[in-house]
Simulated scan of single mutants.
Amino acid sequence: MYSKKLARLAFGVLTEYTVSCPLTRSVSSRVNAARSLCSWTLCLHHRQKNQLSEGFSRRLIRLNVRTVSQTTLDPAEVRKFQAMASKWWDLQGDFAALHSMNDLRVPFIRDNLLNMHGIRQLGKPLAGLRILDVGCGGGVLSEPLGRLGTDVLGIDPVEDSVRTAELHSSYDPDLRERVRYQACTLEELAEEEAEGFHAVVASEVVEHLADLDAFASCCQQVLKPGGSLFITTINKTNLSYVFGIVAAEQLLRIVPSGTHDWEKFISPEDLERLLESFGFYVEAIRGMMYNPLTGAWSWQQNTAINYALHAIKCKEEPQPGQVWAESENLDKPGRATNYS
């Protein structure tokens, strides 16, 4: 009873904050393409200045060439999820909130891909598309994506989680040929599959990674030009610490204690800047909120705690000789320059 009263109080405070602080935004493709160009231009200028004296060839100064020496894998995070590998399909257990999140994230992925590719087949609207589910765990998201007609590859460094995912999907004949799993890291897969996927999904994953630069670089490598990157994660705010860690882990026990590290959370602004530097432009960012009383997720007007992001890999890279001229044109009449 105490937990329910605490949850009701916490949810009421959060709802009041949500109404008073609208932060949701949709990002137009044109504005973000312009922003991405400016971001790329500054990075290029910095690299040219530092690399010229070292005799680097101009061919190395390309958007998709960025030295990443780290791995996405955090051994401590692997140990956490290794201990929970058998619990993925307990609908009332540690991953109950992730199952409930499918009510938002599956339509978010589906609708954005339909806007880009159109309906492929009645009953299987995303047939013919390949999706990579990074950090797939037990396949909680991979399976509903497979039922939309996509060919899904779920990857996870925790082999026991992958075995759980394989066993569960084997019971559904509709998924046996459409969804497959592989125990590996994203960087290991990037060495094998270049530009092989129409979409990459990383849901509740980036806050567990060791190196976000390595993550963004690998996503850029495995996506086809014009491919989509879908991320759901937790903002780095005081509210996210109170509700995402203190309340969710320590008081309400929605997720096991120690699941999250607030220092690894990232704001949508920082995530957008990171992705732009690797050749993406952000199409949309939407706030999300979990109601512990009903066990349901809903879209919200702010991104103070959880948010979903859709980014697109640029189809063409600006040519080095044209970048400065194109950036100057952004200030001419008729071009969007207000990014607020």
Rank of each mutant, 00 (worst) to 15 (best):
M116R: 15
T164A: 09
L167Y: 15
N112T: 14
I61Q: 09
S161A: 12
L98P: 00
L129G: 02
R163M: 13
A97I: 13
A96R: 06
M116W: 06
G135F: 02
E77R: 08
T71I: 09
T71C: 10
H99A: 02
T67G: 12
W88V: 00
D133L: 03
I155C: 07
A83T: 14
R120I: 03
D160K: 11
T71M: 08
G139L: 05
E77W: 08
S161T: 08
L73G: 06
I131D: 04
L98H: 03
T150M: 14
V162Q: 01
K124F: 10
H117T: 00
L167K: 15
D133R: 01
R147W: 07
D151T: 12
Q70N: 13
D151Q: 12
V158G: 02
R105Y: 06
L132F: 03
T72Y: 04
L122N: 15
T71F: 03
G139N: 04
R147A: 05
R163Q: 13
R79L: 13
A85T: 05
N102W: 03
Q121H: 14
D74T: 06
E159Q: 14
I109K: 07
L167N: 14
A83I: 10
F95E: 00
C136R: 01
G128T: 05
A76P: 02
N112Q: 13
P75W: 09
Q70G: 12
M101P: 02
P125H: 07
F108P: 00
G138A: 09
V140A: 04
L122Y: 15
D111L: 11
A96S: 15
A127V: 03
D103Q: 15
V152H: 02
V78A: 08
D90P: 02
R120S: 14
A76E: 15
H168D: 13
A96Q: 08
P144R: 05
C136T: 09
R163E: 13
E77K: 08
I61K: 10
I155Y: 00
Q121C: 11
L113H: 06
A165D: 08
S86M: 11
L129K: 00
V78T: 07
S69N: 15
F81D: 01
R147S: 08
